[in-house]
Design a protein around this nucleic acid. Structure first.
Lengths: 158, 158
DNA sequence: TTAGTTGCAAACTCTTTGCATTTAG
DNA sequence: CTAAATGCAAAGAGTTTGCAACTAA
């Protein structure tokens, strides 16, 4: 964890940005919640626990900065809120998401599923792919089980 | 075109919604601009040309209704604006998009590229896929050519 | 020392809502 | 006739910005 902070610090310095305590606290919150998809407000509340004086505007500015530096990815699941996701070390592509339409849970898929599809896009459409966003909407394992055990009689031909 | 209006009318009636002149005008605008990805504001301005009395709130309400009825899809390319896209007749899945990071153009791909990937998701992750959103960000054909002819010397190993 | 950063409050943008009035079916 | 829909203006939610004070490098 510390080495990741250190790396981000260098990344900031290389562009003559400073690593302020507020920024460090924000990055720490993101590191400690890598699995989640926090909104700016979520981050704000968590940062506030460590550094109560921080303002929401600073969180927004920090997240925007980290986003520009490709340290985080800004995503949008369709509710009107932006969420921020730390990029995995050395990840070439943005990871994918499985969003459950029942319970709202979000699962991440690191695996690159789109290699072939991207080749097709470049070949057939002449479009040079730089990044992608892929989200599946559906029903997660847990909610499928819940539906079965509550006796919903949807014919499951599987 | 008229038969598509007629079909939508029936779809509305079947749920005891009315096809008001405002709704019809909105649907017509969407039909006439199927290729584009209009924001609510865009739709509002276009509808206003035919039906100047319409209010922005009505456009929002209509788009939300059409979205619920799966007549349109609501999408979000990351700028803070929702865009609305008429579903193609009989389209099972949401189509894909190629967004150019140079010129902002958006191209649509009707072809279903994710059949295999979805099977994998269902098999490996036990996640029952209902729909997906796939957007590629990159450089469109036109901007690639522009970059070459303006003599940008980025080594293109292709 | 000083360019960069912060907190605050006010401003902005997009979207939703309350309500009196109108209208499609 | 009446439930549904409309237009307007006001309210909400999320995000951005101006500015004087502050601070990391």
């Amino acid at each position: 964890m510390e080495h990741r902070i250190e790396r981000i610090k260098k990344h900031l310095h290389s562009q003559s940005y400073k690593l302020t305590p507020q920024r460090e606290a924000t990055v720490r919150v993101l590191l400690e919640n890598e699995e989640d998809h926090l909104s700016a407000e979520d981050v704000y509340l968590l940062v506030k626990e460590k550094a109560p004086e921080i303002g929401l505007a600073t969180v927004y500015r920090t997240l925007e900065l980290l986003s520009e530096l490709k340290i985080v990815d800004k995503i949008n699941f369709g509710d009107g809120v932006s969420r921020y996701d730390l990029r995995k070390e050395g990840a070439e592509h943005f990871h994918h998401h499985l969003v459950c339409i029942e319970c709202g849970s979000v699962e991440e898929i690191e695996e690159d599923l789109l290699g072939d599809v991207e080749k097709l896009i470049e070949g057939e459409w002449g479009f040079q792919v730089k990044d992608h966003r892929l989200t599946f909407h559906g029903i997660c394992r847990v909610c499928q089980k819940a539906a079965v055990s509550s006796g919903s009689n949807t014919s499951s031909h599987n």
